[in-house]
């Protein structure tokens, strides 16, 4: 008797939670289906076609799996894929590490926080054309300021930076870090505000120094923020596009060609929309595995647990 009542009460509560949950996400979810999921599915359909979209829906040609088969012998695609992975592996950790340090400093240890924070955020909002021109001039191989300094320091063969096949990707990563830093700093700063002051007070009493506080209080308290930051950073760095388009156009050769830039060229310069859609799905799968592996494992775990529980 008593237990059925309890169960009924529980299921009522659960139903209530369900309704509340769906009400809360409802608005976002509907818009999300219309403006994200639907286009995504559409792009999925397009990946099996050849289509010049100026000629209307009736002229869509089905090509089956051709677009997916083609990419494995597309050397330029494979190079771009490799470049994207290397770029992300360099850029993401560096940008997060620097952002952590700078954010902690900008949070507490400087005068004129507002102005300094703005300065770090500026690269993110400056005109890309200005950014690209200034970087190209600064890193000019022959007589740019950077190489002039290097030469005066005794470096004999200073790198060709954006203009050399071996250094162009690294140079793009430097620009990437420089541009991304302000963005990451803001996220860390927001995270820092959630750390209770009492934790630091307690550590003061224990006589902890700055580094210890950073390692044993700040970083663990930021775990949720850092998780978010890492994922978003990987997602974004896998999709790096504008700096490449404006500064190197993927060159010299294919040395700085990244996936989204390659996809963009295919879709909008060579009118291979179907092939570009197929490439996008590969990128999607890649990021999915790369960034969400932890979440997928978590999710699988929770499903298993639930199934085990009902037994």
């Amino acid at each position: 008797m008593n237990s059925t009542k309890l169960r009924r009460g529980k299921s009522l509560a659960r139903r209530r939670e369900n309704i509340a949950g769906w009400l809360f996400i409802g608005l976002n979810f509907l818009g999300y289906i219309a403006f994200k999921l639907a286009p995504l599915v559409f792009a999925g359909v397009l990946s099996f076609t050849k289509w010049n979209f100026t000629s209307g829906m009736k002229n869509i040609k089905w090509v089956g799996l051709k677009n997916y088969m083609d990419m494995f012998k597309d050397e330029a695609f494979l190079t771009s894929l490799m470049n994207t992975i290397v770029y992300s592996l360099i850029m993401v950790p560096v940008a997060i590490f620097l952002a952590l340090i700078f954010a902690v400093i900008l949070d507490k240890y400087v005068y004129g926080k507002g102005v300094l924070r703005l300065a770090f955020y500026l690269p993110y909002i400056s005109s890309m054309i200005a950014v690209s021109l200034v970087w190209m001039i600064l890193f000019l191989p022959t007589n740019g300021p950077v190489n002039q300094i290097l030469t005066s320091l005794g470096v004999e063969n200073p790198p060709r930076w954006f203009n050399g096949s071996s250094t162009s990707l690294l140079s793009m990563a430097i620009v990437g870090v420089w541009q991304r830093l302000g963005y990451n700093i803001i996220i860390v700063l927001a995270g820092l505000q959630g750390i209770s002051a009492s934790l630091y007070e307690a550590s003061d009493i224990d006589g902890a120094n700055v580094v210890q506080k950073f390692l044993y209080i700040t970083i663990p308290s930021l775990s949720s923020t850092l998780f978010f930051l890492t994922m978003i950073s990987f997602i974004n760095s896998f999709q790096v596009f504008t700096p490449v388009k404006v500064i190197t156009q993927g060159g010299p050769g294919y040395s700085s060609s990244v996936l989204v830039y390659y996809i963009y060229q295919k879709a909008f310069q060579y009118s291979e929309l179907g092939y570009a859609s197929a490439l996008s799905w590969v990128l999607f799968a890649l990021v999915f595995v790369f960034s969400f592996s932890r979440m997928i494992v978590d999710y699988m775990g929770s499903v298993k647990q639930r199934k085990g529980g009902t037994k």
Binding site: L40, L46, I235, Q239, L259, I263, S280
Partner: peptide
């Protein structure tokens, strides 16, 4: 989030 925004333009 992992799908490039550029490829959503035409859809």
């Amino acid at each position: 989030l992992a799908f490039p925004i550029q490829m959503m333009l035409i859809p």
